[in-house]
């Protein structure tokens, strides 16, 4: 599929954000592999900074400016942005929409941005990886790239809140009854597992304030997945991944329960189905060993 002629939609600026290069490089490595295999060209985003989300609770205006600055940089590159972190994607997408629609706010923000030689014009789009896979790569093309269908995998999803919420501002999929992630998981040949409270938050954003609540929330989701026979959990967010993968041994210890549910970034699952090796997809970086699952690949 790589020989296919590339149209302008098949080239994106990659917004990496902070958490992925800091702690979750396996998400980045597997995404790059898979997108290359699907004929998507990624361009590094020059001079980018934090999307702004972490500062929204203490200074909303600072969040707006940090997000707007990133949007201006993308406009200069004349490319649409994809973000792997739903926090980044949601923030940039929301601010982009607000600035495009609200002239008063746009003028106010531009007044500040002028000090750094930038101006928001509203010429680009921002999408999360899932949205880009569904809308720009398309399910058909993904299905065509599958060489090793993972038909023996029973897979549950946890998409991360900001991929679809708040629905009015994000405008992607259905936040109450999402379909897109399911279809992308099924495209790999896996059997999709429904479970109670699938769309519920993992609690990660308040881990720094009170980690007892996120741990209890994540435990409940793991228990619900186990109850429904899920063998594997797939995420598309570095923070959710830390909650379910990095913290899983801790959850098992605190609640005296046994899960051992491997947590893959979606591009790792897709990559396995596209025939990439475990090493190419950085599966060795996972805390919960996926070997009992991957050993089933013929």
């Amino acid at each position: 599929m790589t020989e296919e002629k590339q149209n302008p939609d098949q080239k994106f600026l990659l917004f990496l954000g902070c958490a992925i290069p800091y702690r979750e490089t396996s998400y980045e490595i597997s995404t790059r592999k898979v997108l290359q295999g699907l004929g998507i060209e990624l361009v590094e985003m020059p001079e980018y900074n934090c999307c702004g989300l972490p500062l929204d609770p203490v200074n909303h205006e600072m969040m707006l400016l940090l997000a707007a600055r990133n949007l201006c940089l993308a406009e200069k590159e004349k490319l649409n942005v994809i973000a792997l972190c739903p926090g980044c994607a949601g923030t940039l997408r929301k601010v982009n929409k607000k600035l495009k629609e609200n002239k008063e706010l746009r003028e106010k923000i531009n007044e500040q941005l002028k000090k750094t030689g930038l101006e928001f014009r509203g010429t680009i789009e921002v999408k999360h990886l899932l949205q880009m896979l569904a809308e720009d790569v398309t399910l058909e093309k993904i299905k065509a790239a599958i060489t090793k269908p993972l038909s023996s995998f029973r897979v549950a999803e946890h998409s991360g809140c900001h991929v679809t919420r708040p629905a009015g501002e994000i405008g992607f999929d259905n936040s109450e009854d999402p379909e897109v992630f399911k279809s992308l998981i099924e495209a790999t040949g896996s059997r999709y597992v429904e479970y109670t409270d699938k769309t519920a938050c993992c609690g990660a954003p308040i881990a720094g304030v009170d980690d007892r609540i996120p741990l209890a929330l994540s435990r409940e989701k793991l228990a619900n997945i186990k109850e429904m026979g899920g063998e594997l959990l797939v995420t598309v967010c570095p923070f959710c991944h830390m909650m379910f993968d990095t913290n899983q041994p801790r959850i098992e210890r605190i609640f005296n329960e046994d899960f051992k549910i491997p947590v893959l970034h979606y591009p790792q699952l897709l990559g396995l189905a596209m025939g990439f090796s475990e090493e190419e997809l950085a599966l060795n970086e996972l805390r919960v060993s996926p070997s009992k699952i991957t050993s089933k690949i013929s």
């Binding site: 490089t25 200074n59 000090k115």
Partner: peptide
């Protein structure tokens, strides 16, 4: 990153961020 063949992380424009932090009073905070 370099060892795994990942491209180097783009360097942020610290001066620009400082200016924005000044403008919002955030640097003071």
């Amino acid at each position: 990153r370099a060892k795994t063949g990942l491209p180097p992380l783009p360097k942020s424009n610290i001066k620009a961020i400082e200016k924005l932090a000044e403008a919002t009073g955030f640097s003071q905070m």
